Amino acid sequence: MAEATGAPFVAVKGVTKKFGTFLAVDDVSFDIERGEIFSLLGGSGCGKTTLLRMLAGFEEPTKGRIFIDGKDVTDEPPYERPVNMMFQSYALFPHMSVEKNVAYGLKHEPLSKGERADRVTEMLELVQLQDFRGRKPHQISGGQRQRVALARALARAPKLLLLDEPLAALDKKLREHTQFELMSIQEQTGVTFIVVTHDQEEAMTLSSRMAVMDKGRIRQIGTATDVYEYPKNRFVADFIGSINLFEGRVLSVTGETARVEAEDLGEVTVATERDIAAGDAVTLAIRPEKIALARQAPEGGNQIAGTVASLAYFGKDSLYRVRLASGRVVSANALNARRGGEGQWVADWEDEVFLSFDPSAAIILTD
């Protein structure tokens, strides 16, 4: 992971983009350090791809400035920026071999024929495709085509590589494998990556940091741990992973502990570092894996009885949907730590159970 070294490598300052009356990107600012893998994460229409296109120079900001490596590039065309872009479709030439596809981006570079050939070989070795150099795109797998596109994008030695949904066309298992390949290649080259994705797991795996976007604005920037464990608002808490949300009101605050009357849960004790006071309306957010499931009521702590309404087995863990007396259904995850559940209590449909959670497991949200 890159460390801050003073001036940011990429600085986006107050960037806004309008298409007619539609506000696609709304006063966005953030910094990226050299050598980071930085993700722009959000759902369809949140503005992440428009922001990426402005970084590439394919769109002009309505307002604001963009700096790359200390230089204002806001008004520079794409071909004058130290940037390359890898498109979701890969955009490979079907009639060209793997080698020629990689070499295509170098044809306007001031290189001799030998230097160009050496550069292509270097890139093919980097993505481990040297044995496939003579094949056409239709003769290699989807994952290999993705690596050809990456090699072509890196061949011109850009300072910044923009990747638009780079793994969207791959199946789940290949996507997971390729994520680690991308991280390894980025570490070897030292090129700064900005990745646009709607896939939360992909962003959390790849990124040194990510920006979570909604309706053209950035709602939170941070590491995977920051946005998952310490969301700053309800949108981020609800968008990243699975979560249970309960409306409530603060009854009292003592130091870093609050007593909250929560809808469906009753009175619970939660840890908080937020500036809250008695009477404040809040939302309690609790991840399913932070909730324990038991046959008998545990001693002390936050607990509530319920009945297993449904369950799903995922191999490594199981998801239980527990109906409370109020009718509210709460999700809880249980790790399947032993093969076949040997010696491990496993709840079944319609079982009466108790849910419990530590005070530190609940996140208090005020926004």
Rank of each mutant, 00 (worst) to 15 (best):
Q296P: 00
G241S: 06
G70W: 11
T192E: 09
L106F: 04
R175W: 08
V25R: 08
G301S: 05
E202H: 04
T283W: 04
R65K: 14
I304N: 00
M210R: 02
E267A: 13
E261K: 14
I32H: 02
L40T: 05
W349D: 09
C46K: 06
D317C: 00
Q179I: 08
E342A: 15
A117N: 12
F22N: 12
K17I: 10
D72L: 11
V12M: 10
K13C: 08
G45Y: 04
V83E: 03
E99C: 05
A337D: 13
V15H: 06
I363Q: 13
A278G: 15
N84I: 06
V236L: 02
Y313D: 06
W349S: 07
F354C: 03
L150P: 01
G134T: 12
I37W: 01
L162K: 04
A292G: 10
D367I: 06
Q146G: 12
R234A: 07
V212W: 02
R295K: 14
E33D: 15
L154S: 07
E165Q: 06
E247H: 13
A325D: 14
A277P: 00
T257M: 14
L284C: 04
L163H: 05
L92E: 03
R295E: 14
Y313P: 00
D280Y: 07
T121S: 15
P94L: 11
V236M: 02
V127T: 10
G248Y: 08
V98A: 10
P94R: 12
G340E: 14
A285I: 01
V83N: 07
A312S: 12
P8C: 10
T197K: 01
L355M: 10
A337H: 11
V227M: 11
